[in-house]
Design a protein around this nucleic acid. Structure first.
Length: 600
RNA sequence: GACCCCGUAGCUCAACCGGAUAGAGCAUCCGCCUUCUAAGCGGACGGUUGCAGGUUCAAGUCCUGCCGGGGUCGCCA
């Protein structure tokens, strides 16, 4: 089974081949001029130079070969040499019924899947998620779902920022704050080594009662600011970091507690956004790999001493500029950010051996990833091209700078979601839906509407560009928004409930009205949207398709009554068309990480 | 200073290896609820795709220069 675009491409390519023109010119696309055609091929124009014939002459040859084919209602030359194709009603109906019968609503499945890892770029321990984390998580999630849906074996890794200086900072901040914890750390430092698992459990329980997420949220920013200004404080944090990494028992337990508290909170918050990780690996997980890796890099003669540090030179002849080397070991002897990333690549190669690793991380880190990837290729930890940075732009304020709240701080993700939810509740009450629903369902709908608004407004932009963060737009429920899509889906569900209640049955799809024709052509375009989104790692193609599908359905809804259809056959056809549209729309929304409610 | 990304309707954004008349939404204006959810549908208005060159039968898309915005440029992550 294949979509019309592909089957037509094959037919046109064959016609080109018969004329002795390379098949690649036979590529068919959806028509730019729906008034003239369903599909078009521009190949005759492009081939003209190669075969030294006027475009219209080539097109004429192709048209002749194609004419008389049963799947085409018409094939003609237009303009300078465009080949315009219109599919026959029978073909379109057949395709519609094919999609209707397909669990995947017309989307193809890869025969040779790849192992793919999606790296979400790492929320950090003790740092609350803010609006900047929104993009990484929802773009990463969407890409993960898309790759999985098309057939790849995909793992998503949160890649937790749970190691390094920030941990030392927190240890010092917490022990300064809480005398009990300070004393506990002292006690544990004195009798090192002789602790049983029960002791460990007891210590963790004691910490659980004293150190919670609110405390970490409060202490971390203070400590980070203090470290910048206060050299003595900074040195203590460095020392604590070193001791933690060297395995100081009490610190290890305290750290374990930090990580757990943060992970539980983040998991809950991500889950509410429809983002779930398969792996909660962290930077700490590869800590033990770093030493042997550095040795190995040294043996491979990749490491170079430079200004007291150890680096890998990754510049290439073809570079337009000098890309700085990857700093592996600082002059103080510690491993750097890139070192951890490199070790993570090695770790993944050993555990999962991915053929593709996608990093959903801010565009500003493009150079960093280029350095790390090149180092990994040099070291043989991955093959050229297996590592790819899926960069995205920042969310800016009205001033064009990364978004800040009125107070100058970052807007917490939690607060953003709550703002959107409040708007959704308000809107639901306006529509008079508050009264009849029980509070739990009401809240559930408000949440789904809010999340759809946030995600859709972000994912409908191409990921690479920065955009202006506009709360009104984010929580707007009209026009090209998440709630518009949900609304269309909900309308279908509503009418299908009536269909069920009145005992009507779906039947073969028969295309009569123009609105039905348009709708089916869009259902067929799902595959193109998916493949485009897949190749470019760009969910906006799916968002765009879902929106167009919803628009087409809405026109169909206005033009073609379902329950009140002229006769039984037409009603049955429209019921199936509605069901099929709903399935594809829910699939597309699911790929964006958006859930649809039953009513709204 | 070097390099990277961006500049499209009043605003926010799209545009399928270069292709026909550059598309949506918002805003503004005009119509449409006694029939399946009007968070909707139809229509109107709105463009020298930052500027200047170049390549091409054809440029928002490719090349060069300039202007404007953002970002990055080894011991933070």
């Amino acid at each position: 089974m294949s979509d019309l675009k592909r089957s037509l491409s094959e037919a046109v390519a064959a016609a080109f081949a018969e004329l002795g023109i390379p098949e690649e010119y036979g590529r068919v696309t959806a028509s730019d001029r729906p008034d003239l055609a369903d599909f078009q091929c521009n190949g005759a124009l492009a081939a003209a130079k190669v075969v030294r014939k006027p475009p219209r002459e080539i097109a004429a040859g192709v048209v002749e070969k194609l004419s008389g084919r049963p799947e085409l209602a018409s094939v003609e030359i237009a303009g300078l040499g465009f080949i315009n194709l219109r599919v026959s009603p029978a073909t379109l109906s057949a395709r519609a019924n094919e999609i209707a019968a397909d669990e995947r609503a017309g989307a193809s499945l890869f025969e040779s899947p790849r192992r793919v890892m999606v790296d979400y770029g790492g929320p950090n321990v003790a740092k609350p998620m803010h609006v900047g984390h929104l993009r990484a998580s929802i773009i990463g999630e969407s890409v993960k779902r898309l790759y999985r849906f098309r057939g790849d074996e995909v793992l998503g890794d949160a890649h937790f920022g749970d190691w390094g200086f920030q941990m030392g900072l927190l240890i010092v901040a917490v022990t300064d704050e809480d005398a009990f914890v300070r004393n506990l750390m002292e006690r544990l430092a004195q009798g090192s080594g002789a602790y049983s698992p029960t002791d460990e459990r007891r210590v963790l329980d004691e910490l659980a009662g004293r150190v919670d997420l609110a405390m970490l949220d409060r202490l971390y920013p203070e400590a980070a600011a203090k470290a910048k200004a206060d050299e003595a404080f900074r040195d203590r944090a460095r020392k604590a970091t070193a001791e933690l990494q060297a395995g100081r028992y009490g610190y290890r337990l305290l750290w374990k507690h930090f990580v757990e508290v943060s992970r539980v909170a983040l998991q809950r918050e991500f889950h509410a956004l429809g983002v779930d990780f398969d792996l909660w690996k962290g930077e700490s997980d590869v800590d033990a790999l770093i030493e042997p890796m550095v040795r190995e890099l040294d043996e491979k003669r990749l490491l170079v001493d430079d200004q007291g540090a150890r680096i890998i030179r990754i510049a290439r002849e073809s570079d337009k500029r000098e890309l700085p080397p990857l700093l592996v070991i600082s002059s103080e002897g510690s491993a750097m950010y890139g070192t951890t990333d490199l070790a993570t690549i090695l770790d993944r190669r050993r555990s999962f051996d991915p053929e593709l690793v996608l990093y959903a991380v801010d565009q500003r880190q493009a150079d960093h990833f280029e350095q790390v990837f090149r180092a990994a290729y040099l070291a043989g930890y991955a093959k050229e091209g297996e590592l790819e940075h899926i960069g995205f732009g920042t969310m800016n304020g009205p001033d064009g700078k990364p978004f800040k709240t009125r107070e100058g701080g970052v807007l917490k993700l939690h607060d953003l979601i709550e703002m959107a939810r409040a708007k959704a509740r308000e809107r639901l009450r306006e529509a008079g839906l508050g009264a009849e629903l029980d509070p739990a369902e009401f809240e559930d709908i408000a949440h789904k509407v809010a999340v759809s608004a946030l995600k859709f407004s972000d994912l409908s932009n191409f990921r690479g560009t920065s955009y202006v963060f506009d709360l009104d737009r984010f929580t707007s429920f009209e026009g090209k928004t998440g709630p518009y899509l949900l609304y269309q889906a909900v309308r279908i569900k509503s009418v299908l409930r009536r269909v069920e209640a009145e005992g009507h049955e779906p039947g073969r799809i028969k295309i009569i009205e123009p609105a039905e024709r348009e709708l089916v052509l869009l259902l067929d375009a799902f595959e193109t949207a998916l493949s485009e989104a897949y190749d470019k790692k760009a969910p906006n193609f799916i968002a765009d398709h879902a929106f167009k599908l919803a628009q087409a359905f809405s026109r169909f809804w206005a033009a073609c009554p379902i329950l009140q259809a002229e006769d039984e056959t037409i009603r049955a056809s429209r019921i199936r068309l509605a069901t099929t549209t709903l399935r594809q729309m829910e699939l597309a929304l699911d790929l964006l990480g958006i859930e649809t409610p039953e009513r709204m």
